[in-house]
Design a protein around this nucleic acid. Structure first.
Length: 801
RNA sequence: GGACCUGUAGUUUAGUGGUUAUAACGCUGCCCUUACAAGGCGGAGGUCGCCGGUUCGAAUCCGGUCGGGUCCACCA
């Protein structure tokens, strides 16, 4: 055993060892209880960043703890490769355009890229010590995932939970695709709030406030509140739309709020969801004025061809010229934009596929309540999102790249044709149905659209558990035991996964969900878009993976943590300290062969502390409170074990002849404490603990890795309250002597002529007096009157030699 | 506007009713002590955001208030 531990050399060595041993491979044949983890698949669009290191470390603590607790841990790996990030990444890499290629070619290219990158991409996670099994991983664009995704869709169509509808839907005019509610984001934008004058047929003035004057040509009716005295006389009249000069009805409707704007509401097709509802309710003919790429169409008359913003300005100018613009006020307000591109969303009538949500909100909330959320309050975020849902889930996207929606339409009768399960995965643009349409025709048109990426990633439990492919595997691993994820995707990943599991198998997808917080850089989130990310591989090269993980273990679940490089030093010091303590212990254990004899009070004190720690650390890990476990283990290791116990037993180990119990008891406790600490630290610092384990313990336990060794067992018989009290007293006295020497600038080696102790617990002190004597270097210990108060019931006098 | 989270030492933080409020980093005095100077033993540093209430007792519970964050809503 060398003097120094070089993590730069040792960490990669152990990584190679674990991978060569397939240490983390799930053993299907094992009889042990399964613990399955629905690992978050990262986008394979670049490199791991420190935020990943932070959250993936946290889930790995749990995986490793469970493995040592004797579970058969199923911890698969996957990547999410069918989203925009991958599409852009591949387009850039090969200088191609997805839209200009046959879809299957682009998918093949993505798959190829993904496979090629795999080694390099996953390296960050592997190097971090993530104990997932990387050799078998899924990619959300691979055949199996496309198959599962399409299978899920067909299943939902058959259950009438997925449907196609032509209706106003949220639309991004930049990406030219429909969107789901979960893809919206708020953005503060400058705008104007305009008072526009309409007139009735009798030239009565009606003033309407709007931020969307370009939708004036889309206006189909006007609402006033039935109890609004100001406007009662307007009800039943017709209004003339300014500039466009067509007539629209005026209705009384509760939904018009007299307090808002001028109290008069124009209904356009479509300004928002309520417009769509109002038009449906009144059975009005919508006036659609926008094209899919965000321009005014023919119905907008002279404004045809203008972009939305241009039309807005032109219309305002023209209104002003005609004296119909009464007021124009500058405002700054939040609008809904597409989270990917920041473009304001519009409502266009298009034909889309939806999954029913609105009629089952209660079921989703109930399902959420069957899952344990850590931390608990994250559940209320989930419930608030479900309660606030206003739309069914639009799953079709008018994009080229993604998992194709597996549907054909009969050209003759228009019927929908779904593929055979055996035919999956299909691309309906290129593949043909195996059978004819009910009408006898075999002339079909394949669906062009692809799925929302969440439609596939919401199936990760089904994907990893081999849903509808391997029943016994499915039963064994599903529902998954754990879903780890971040809180920003509760409304998407967590929610949609719950929806799918409920719809497919009337089940919950996982028993527990742990939600990690954000890694902050200063006050803001560390994220790629903010340009403040740090490459964890650099950090690992500088401080070691164990140090990085040690740092990540400091934040409790759901809690944000502000990153500061200096905090890595703490972990690095702990690694060094472990190394040195083990070095000392192993030196003292050379002539020791596992006998348990010669246990004295101080040993019992240590054993009591150790077993209390085992209990609390185990409980904490069980409750996903790895941060508390770490803090407790850390405290025990540095203070109880290293600072006190090791110092106290040194004399006994060097001069066993002076002690009636000899040194074996100390060796026993030393051996046991070091091994227990190593094991409890192993989930957090997998490398250094493995290194030390292999110096001695692997042979003793006949186990090839600490990570599959047995977690320490709490032994109630080792708890001895009286010994603990006696030991605590000893530590108190020793500390007081150390303080005395420090104040006098004396070396701790300085001999004392005598140490007089004044306490009512004389019996306890006598139990440990030889240890106190050795640790304080007192030639004699006596009991009697003393003046220097140490604590309420303890006074000492110190006489130097 | 609503919901949830959050405010503790210079910094990052622990602590959900009970002596004198945690630790790390930083600062500082001393100590080469046969594991460790990347260490050890000490020290300084906090009116626990603010106000009020409940209680024998509040960082902790309740109400209010101010600041930070997240999500949602509104967008006439």
């Amino acid at each position: 055993m060398g003097d120094k531990y070089d993590f730069r050399q040792e960490e990669p060595k152990w990584l190679r060892f674990w991978e060569a041993q397939n240490l983390y491979k799930f053993d299907e044949k094992s009889k042990k209880k399964v613990y399955s983890i629905d690992t978050p698949p990262p986008y394979k669009s670049g490199h791991i960043h420190l935020g990943h290191a932070f959250s993936y470390s946290q889930q790995d603590f749990i995986a490793r703890f469970r493995r040592m607790r004797g579970f058969n841990v199923f911890y698969p790996w996957g990547t999410d490769d069918n989203g925009l990030p991958t599409e852009r990444f591949v387009e850039k890499k090969y200088n191609v355009k997805s839209a200009n290629m046959p879809r299957h070619d682009f998918i093949a290219l993505c798959k190829k890229t993904v496979d090629e990158m795999d080694e390099e991409f996953t390296f960050g996670w592997r190097r971090l010590g993530i104990s997932a099994y990387f050799k078998e991983s899924y990619s959300t664009i691979d055949d199996w995932c496309r198959k599962t995704s399409q299978r899920s869709f067909i299943n939902l169509v058959n259950k009438k939970l997925a449907y196609q509808l032509e209706a106003p839907t949220m639309w991004c005019v930049n990406c030219q695709t429909a969107l789901a509610q979960a893809e919206l984001e708020d953005k503060e934008l400058d705008s104007t709030f305009n008072d526009v004058q309409f007139e009735t047929e009798n030239k009565e003035k009606i003033i309407i406030a709007t931020t969307r004057p370009e939708l004036i040509p889309a206006c189909v009716c006007i609402y006033v509140h039935p109890d609004d005295a100001r406007y009662k006389k307007l009800v039943g009249e017709k209004a003339v739309v300014p500039l466009f000069k067509y007539k629209i009805p005026i209705f009384a409707d509760e939904s018009a709020d007299p307090e808002k704007g001028t109290g008069i509401l124009m209904i356009c097709s479509y300004g928002d969801k309520y417009d769509a509802e109002a038009i449906m309710k009144r059975k009005l003919e919508p006036r659609l004025v926008l094209t899919k790429d965000g321009k005014m169409n023919k119905l907008a008359g002279k404004y045809e061809g203008l972009k939305i913003k241009e039309a807005r300005n032109e219309i305002l100018n023209d209104l002003e010229a005609e004296g119909m613009l009464l007021k124009k006020k500058h405002i700054r307000h939040a609008v809904n934009v597409h989270e990917r591109c920041g473009t304001e969303i519009e409502f266009l009538t298009t034909k889309q596929w939806f999954i029913k949500l609105l009629e089952n909100k209660k079921k989703f909330i109930d399902a959420g309540r069957k899952i344990n959320w850590y931390p608990e309050f994250m559940r209320s975020r989930y419930e608030k999102w479900v309660e606030g849902l206003g739309w069914d889930w639009c799953i079709s996207r008018q994009r080229h790249y993604g998992v194709p929606i597996p549907v054909w339409y009969c050209k003759k009768c228009g019927e929908i044709k779904l593929p055979d399960d055996k035919q999956l995965p299909v691309d309906p643009k290129e593949d043909k149905p195996k059978t004819k349409c009910k009408c006898g025709s075999d002339d079909f048109e394949g669906e062009q659209d692809v799925f929302d990426t969440w439609a596939t990633s919401s199936l990760t439990p089904q994907i990893i558990s081999k849903w509808k492919e391997d029943d016994s595997f499915f039963r064994k691993t599903y529902p998954n035991d754990l879903r780890p994820q971040a809180h920003d995707i509760i409304r998407t990943w967590a929610f949609y996964t719950i929806v799918k599991s409920l719809y497919h198998d009337n089940s919950i997808p996982w028993k527990n969900i742990i939600v990690s917080g954000y890694l902050l850089a200063g006050k803001e989130k560390m994220s790629k878009s903010k340009g403040n990310v740090i490459d964890p591989l650099e950090t690992i090269n500088k401080y070691g993976s164990d140090a990085l993980r040690f740092w990540a273990s400091g934040a409790k679940l759901g809690g944000d943590l502000a990153y500061q490089e200096k905090d890595l030093i703490t972990g690095q010091k702990t690694v060094t300290k472990l190394w040195n303590a083990a070095r000392f212990a192993l030196m003292q254990l050379e002539d020791y062969n596992n006998e348990k004899e010669g246990i004295n009070e101080i040993d019992r004190w240590m054993l009591t502390k150790l077993n209390k720690l085992i209990k609390s650390a185990t409980d904490s890990f069980e409750a996903y409170e790895y941060a508390k476990a770490k803090a407790d283990i850390d405290y025990f290791f540095w203070h109880d074990l290293c600072d006190n116990y090791l110092e106290i037993i040194k004399d006994r180990i060097y001069n066993p002849q002076n002690y009636k119990e000899g040194k074996k008891g100390a060796q026993y406790v030393l051996h046991k404490s070091i091994l227990s600490v190593l094991k409890m630290f192993a989930p957090i610092m997998p490398y250094i603990t493995e290194e030390i384990y292999h110096l001695k313990y692997d042979k003793e336990e006949n186990c090839k890795s600490i990570h599959i060794s047995k977690w320490p067992e709490f032994d109630k018989k080792e708890i001895n309250e009286k010994s603990e009290k006696a030991g605590d007293l000893a530590v108190e006295i020793i500390s007081a002597v150390r303080k005395f020497k420090a104040e006098k600038n004396l070396s701790l080696k300085t001999e004392l002529k005598s140490l007089t102790i004044d306490t009512k617990d004389r019996e306890l002190v006598e139990m440990v007096s030889s240890d106190i004597k050795a640790a304080t270097r007192a030639q004699a210990i006596g009991f009697g009157k003393a003046e220097n108060e140490v604590s309420k019931d303890l006074r000492i006098n110190i006489e130097l030699a």
